[in-house]
């Protein structure tokens, strides 16, 4: 019967890491104890209140002021429960904080409102973390500016990161699929847009993906495709495509030759080096009426060409 109830009230996300089931087990143990105590004590309170409700004006009440044995019992029992629950939590968490030696390392950099990943062989990816199923992976994380926190609900892991310090977390994905990654430490306007996807794939798919960049023989990818990928990963959080203002100006019809007034009053027509310049150091060319919050991006030459050609396709 208990499992049936736990089944209904199981709101935890899918158990996708090695310890997720144990974490959920601990959570269920605590929840059962809590709900039992709350319901029992409330029931007893309401029972007493109703059973001894005031029937006559000077109803005889028992003059009980204290009961030493009862009081010691209900002090010791919660303390024992506390010990037990702490021990449960400690054992699993101890494992969470000690990554195995051979775990493959991925570097994570949180920057205002997007995630950057870099693998051991130097492959970079933005907004998408690909890991092989069944193998432990250790994320070594830092932030380029403010506090961020790397949270994967399905893996039950979370760790803050701040500039000038490396924090780490590790997990072993047990089931493949795509999972959400959130930033849970408040970091400004697009804090709710700072999400990424965790793709858990089979070992082979992971290796192909990892070495994708290495073989030059693959047919050249159209610049607009890489541009679009960069747009969705880095720019979508602040620049929309449908003309609406998110944080920065919208990219709708950006190459239509329309005049834009900058903050310092100069008028400018969008062209290649305007885009190149406002990616490299954006604060020099902020369009009037928009907050100067755009961070600088270091894009390689082919990525820049990709972004520019993608923008040209936007009508």
């Amino acid at each position: 019967m208990l499992d049936w109830i736990l089944e209904i009230f199981d709101f935890m996300p899918v158990e996708a890491s090695s310890w997720a089931s144990r974490v959920d087990y601990i959570n269920n143990v605590i929840t059962v104890i809590s709900v039992f105590c709350t319901v029992a004590i409330t029931f007893v309170m309401i029972l007493f209140a109703w059973k001894y409700r005031r029937k006559s004006e000077n109803q005889k009440t028992a003059y009980i002021t204290h009961n030493a044995t009862l009081e010691t019992i209900w002090t010791i029992i919660p303390t024992i429960i506390c010990f037990v629950l702490f021990y449960f939590g400690y054992t699993v968490y101890h494992e969470m904080r000690n990554p195995p030696v051979g775990a493959n390392e991925v570097f994570v950099k949180g920057q205002t409102w997007y995630w950057d990943f870099q693998y051991a062989n130097g492959k970079k990816s933005t907004g998408e973390l690909v890991v092989p199923v069944g193998e432990p992976v250790k994320l070594i994380m830092t932030s380029a500016d403010v506090l961020h926190s790397f949270f994967i609900p399905a893996m039950r892991v979370k760790e803050d990161m701040y500039n000038g310090n490396y924090s780490y977390l590790w997990f072993t994905p047990t089931s493949s699929g795509t999972f959400d990654i959130f930033c849970t430490e408040y970091c400004g306007t697009q804090h709710s847009g700072m999400t990424a996807k965790l793709k858990v794939v089979s070992k082979e798919a992971y290796n192909d993906w990892l070495n994708e960049k290495k073989d030059p023989s693959a047919e050249p990818v159209l610049p607009e495709v890489t541009g679009k990928a960069i747009y969705t990963a880095k720019c979508a959080a602040c620049h929309s495509l449908d003309g609406s203002k998110v944080v920065g100006p919208s990219f709708k019809g950006i190459y239509s030759g329309a005049k834009h007034v900058l903050q310092d009053g100069t008028e400018v027509v969008v062209d290649d080096n305007y885009i190149r310049n406002s990616i490299a150091n954006p604060l020099s060319q902020i369009v009037a009426g928009y907050p100067p919050v755009m961070p600088a991006f270091q894009l390689s030459e082919d990525e820049l060409i990709g972004v520019i050609s993608y923008m040209k396709t936007l009508k």
Binding site: F107, K109, K138, T142, N165
Partner: peptide, 14 residues
């Protein structure tokens, strides 16, 4: 402190 492994990384060190 978690330590970066042998990969050359360009993250700025505070």
């Amino acid at each position: 402190e978690s330590i970066p492994s042998n990969v050359e990384i360009e993250y700025k060190k505070g």
